[in-house]
Design a protein around this nucleic acid. Structure first.
Lengths: 399, 399
DNA sequence: TATAGTATTGAATCCGAGC
DNA sequence: CGCTCGGATTCAATACTAT
């Protein structure tokens, strides 16, 4: 839902404690007017000019106060700002939400084209993360261990002796004791996410547009499915789109008619591919496209873009015709995937087709597969089957 | 030179405009006493406990004012702090040096060992960079282009057409014109420098010791050889050591006798850790090929480095024990791979082992596999087998 | 000497005991 | 109930040892 109104006016009409998370990216105090032309030559701009900083800060502060009111007690607020006025904005947050509710200073870093000026190239923006109370909702995202870490070592339990020296814990027989299952490294407050590429598909031609991955991270760590996400300065609506793509309810507000038009247009058909996080769980924090690419790479494929039925072709031909490859999407049943690949493969006159099955769905095992199609379970499924069997056998043989 | 005195007292004795650069790393307002023991059991500590924030800020402010006085007009000041009080400190800098002399908010990021907490793991500190005037000294450091940059493209001159779009400049014959030699990418304000490791030789046992690399960067960009570098809260003297190592004159001041002792000791033989990580980069720790990484990724593995028998562990335990994964190397026969995995897996008490077979070698198919090991062909082999069979069957049925 | 494998260590954080 | 204090846990990155 996107509303065209001064957010202050709309907020006043909202109920107390009705929102789970707020992301706001207010106009920066740049004293300049931001303009940008899109591919069609339309020009967008927004007034980002204030008579004084006090005026600017007052403008923000009354809105932040209202935002606190509509936020649930378990809720969080993320304020995105640039280095120009970040310290003043944080003072406001300290005052309104209380210093004790400061959670993190998130640094979004990116590499950018240099316009070599004197000084260091600015390559980051700051997002302040405050919660309303200390009973805030938080989902930890676990990331990979550093390559410098010796994983096999930390899988062993350890003790410290009286002098504080560490040693491996051993049982009576002198054998090492295993540690509990490891979850990975909790995510840091420094996020390296590429700056919205000038050619990116998701770009809709609005200034200061943020990458969707940034918003998805914020949404994941602070909300669950079905929660309400509010963006009072929504601009082109990235936060609302990210919320909808991840089954949260998004409310966007913007005073600019043009912005609301763009956001609404975007919401009508949010690119599925825009969503970069795996739906299967926060633990497996990986980009879907990365996994798909990895599989296609292993198979020695040319990658096909924008084809619902085919993700790639084997570089090698068989019977003088290409072999199409498709990887089952999380949203597709095996049956649907087979049908999509079959249609697309026949159209391209493939001699054979390969479907990589990524879901272990017994109900679908009995569907008919075309004669020239090979269905292969991905490694995870193969292994799960074999592991279950193997461990079961081991139990039996132990009797 | 290191002086043991309250820096305010010493600064008052210093001449106007006598210093080229100031780095200060004052107490962070942690409201804790920072302590650390060195290898010999000596304990060092400094108090960072205040009656109020106002008291803390006043303490800093009078000193910052004096610092401005002793700084040359071409000089710069770098204030190191963490997120606890950074916004207040920046207000002081704005007030004393003027907002117009704000140059950069430098983010020092690092990975760090830590227990997991609710929320994001803090992985950065902030250094505010202000200059005394706009005629400040600055040496640009150029860094390497990122591997994704298309070097040959940026070597072509560009023009903007009437609509403001960029295009490659061409000569009469329509050939592209080469741009002037590129120097690299100017350094960003986000610096990834490893945190001083517990095992680093550079460590002298003083709390909050900073890596020399960090100080060297600051010194490079803001001073020339022979310039005077002042650190009014020098602690173990990292800034002074870095200055001396780079032929600048370093002046360190600290109120703690012990700190000054350590700093002086360090200055007798200034030493910079030969950090392998810094020298060779994180990439050199990543020993897996792209395909290997892709497989481990798909299997949801933690990646294991420097282990001949194991490439990764499944993140999930089976039977309360880890499952080891190995990918057959091109140089290994299946037999050898099985043996290596078996030995390593048993040592780590794995409940099961998985070997991904990457070579289609019939001779090896008859070797014996341990009961708790699963051998799976990689996709390529599976597909090749099935394709051959399929296409053969199709031929037969065509007859 | 190069590589594989093992032993340490700091300090942020949580948790539970004691008051 | 809120405070402090001690103990346990965590992992990045080194040094050291064995082969």
């Amino acid at each position: 839902m996107v509303i065209c109104e001064d957010c202050l006016d709309f907020l006043k009409k909202m109920d107390n404690k009705s929102v789970d998370m707020i992301y706001l990216d207010p106009p920066f105090f740049t004293q300049k007017t931001q303009t940008l032309k899109d591919a069609q030559g339309n020009e967008y701009s927004f007034g980002d000019v204030w008579n004084s900083r006090t005026e600017y800060l007052d403008y923000i502060k009354v809105r932040v106060c209202e935002l606190k009111r509509v936020l649930k007690d378990t809720g969080s607020i993320f304020l995105h700002c640039d280095e120009k006025a970040s310290h003043y904005l944080r003072l406001i947050l300290d005052e309104v939400f209380g210093e004790e509710n400061f959670r993190s200073e998130i640094i979004w870093t990116y590499k950018r084209w240099s316009n070599s000026k004197k000084g260091l190239l600015s390559g980051h923006q700051t997002i302040f993360f405050y919660s309303k109370t200390n009973k805030y909702k938080f989902n930890t995202i676990y990331t990979a261990y550093s390559p410098t870490t010796n994983i096999d070592q930390i899988l062993q339990e350890r003790v410290r002796d009286d002098r504080g020296k560490a040693a491996y814990k051993c049982d009576d027989k002198g054998e090492v004791i295993l540690a509990k299952e490891k979850k990975g490294v909790p995510m840091s407050d420094v996020w390296e996410i590429p700056f919205l590429n000038p050619k990116a598909k998701e770009r809709v031609g609005y200034p200061t547009q943020k990458p969707i991955e940034l918003l998805e991270r914020i949404i994941y760590i602070s909300t669950d499915e079905g929660d309400v996400v509010l963006d009072p300065f929504c601009g082109s609506g990235t936060a609302v789109v990210a919320a909808e793509l991840n089954n949260r309810k998004g409310i966007g507000i913007d005073i600019s008619k043009k912005a609301v038009e763009i956001a609404e247009e975007r919401l009508k058909k949010p690119y599925k591919t825009e969503s970069k996080l795996l739906k299967t769980g926060i633990e497996s924090y990986k980009t879907k496209s990365a996994v798909e690419n990895a599989i296609l790479n292993q198979l020695d494929c040319d990658v096909v873009q924008r084809n619902k039925g085919i993700d790639g072709f084997l570089k090698k031909y068989y019977k003088n015709a290409p072999v199409a490859v498709k990887i089952q999407k999380a949203s597709e049943s095996l049956c649907e995937a087979v049908e999509l690949l079959k249609t697309a493969g026949e159209k391209k006159k493939c001699s054979a087709m390969i479907l990589i099955c990524t879901k272990d769905d017994d109900l679908n095992r009995h569907i008919s597969i075309p004669k020239n199609m090979i269905v292969i379970d991905d490694y995870k499924i193969q292994i799960e089957h074999e592991l279950t069997e193997l461990l079961c056998n081991l139990c039996v043989s132990n009797l």
